[in-house]
Nucleic acid binder design. Structure first.
Length: 295
DNA sequence: CGGGTTTGACCTGCGC
DNA sequence: GCGCAGGTCAAACCCG
């Protein structure tokens, strides 16, 4: 397997799954799943990476069976006072006075306005909230994988200890605040790490042919930590050519030959999808972990 | 001209 | 409290 080596513990600790109470896997189960996932990942799309969440990951938030990255201690913790320290507050007050002197249109004016807007939002309870995230790796020459949605780049940052920058994208759809970050693995420049944050509140603008595809059907299942599986409807070779798999992936991959070079039948009959994750299912509408594992 | 990208400045939160 | 690194903003620029 190429790319970053992550053990099952680390992956399960950070990976961004939400589990239903009644379907929650034990830590052990998730660990085993992650292990299996990693061990068997020899493909183009290797594995789910730990979706690093600011507070949760850095603060080593203890994992519970009901673990969900969407609510970190940092976010839940009261930050009633938006001023980190009194000195800073003083400085800001000074700036506000300065800004009054300089008047509208000045850089300082804009700067202070921005800050005041943020404060206002905080007071209204519109605290910045981190959406759940998940990340995965693909081998690709292009950074920005075609996933059916339209994205606008809003930033790029150099990443420490990596020669490759990270790009920040936002979904262009109105009122859709899904973001994604794309960066190249510094250990393996042919590998692109894509991290999604948030959930689309709209359908993909691209045509999703899966609904009419006979190859794949959704079926309920009760398999430990998964409450759904994607099952191929025609025995163990439901997906029997590249095009069909591409179709099953709902157009996630713009060019299957680029990403799925080693696909050979017969294929897995049962594909697994994290329980009610929403996010992953949204982004990879018809692609499952097993798809990713076996491609 | 509208929409997307680039890029430097700024903000935020964590670790020391 | 400070420094650092990640994340975001927004003006300038580019392109069809």
């Amino acid at each position: 397997m190429s790319g970053r080596e992550v053990d099952g513990d680390e992956l399960s600790r950070h990976c961004d799954f939400s589990f239903h109470d009644d379907l929650s896997p034990t830590h052990r189960e998730r660990h085993d799943f992650m292990r299996e996932f990693l061990d068997e990942s020899t493909l183009t799309m290797d594995y789910l990476l730990p979706a690093r969440d600011h507070g949760a990951a850095r603060a080593s938030t203890p994992v519970t069976p009901n673990f969900s990255m969407s609510s970190t201690s940092a976010e839940l913790g009261g930050e009633e006072d938006s001023w980190p320290c009194s000195k800073k507050k003083e400085k800001m007050e000074e700036e506000e006075e300065e800004e009054e002197k300089h008047g509208e249109g000045s850089e300082l004016f804009k700067k202070v306005s921005r800050r005041i807007n943020r404060q206002a939002k905080q007071k209204l309870g519109e605290k910045r909230q981190r959406e759940p995230r998940f990340a995965f790796m693909t081998k690709s020459k292009v950074d920005n994988l075609e996933d059916g949605y339209r994205w606008r780049k809003y930033g790029q940052k150099a990443v420490k200890n990596s020669g490759y920058p990270r790009s920040y994208y936002r979904c262009t759809a109105q009122k859709c605040n899904v973001k994604k970050m794309v960066e190249r693995c510094h250990r393996d420049p042919t590998t692109v790490i894509t991290t999604y944050e948030g959930k689309h509140n709209h359908h993909s603008p691209a045509v999703n042919p899966i609904r009419s595809s006979p190859a794949v059907a959704l079926a309920p299942a009760n398999f430990g930590h998964f409450d759904h599986r994607v099952m191929c409807s025609s025995g163990n070779s439901g997906i029997n050519d590249m095009h069909q798999l591409y179709t099953a992936c709902g157009g996630f991959l713009s060019n299957p030959s680029t990403y799925l070079p080693s696909l050979t039948p017969p294929y897995l009959p049962q594909l697994q999808v994290p329980a009610d994750h929403g996010l992953l299912q949204d982004i990879l509408p018809r692609m499952s972990h097993s798809d990713i594992k076996r491609l």
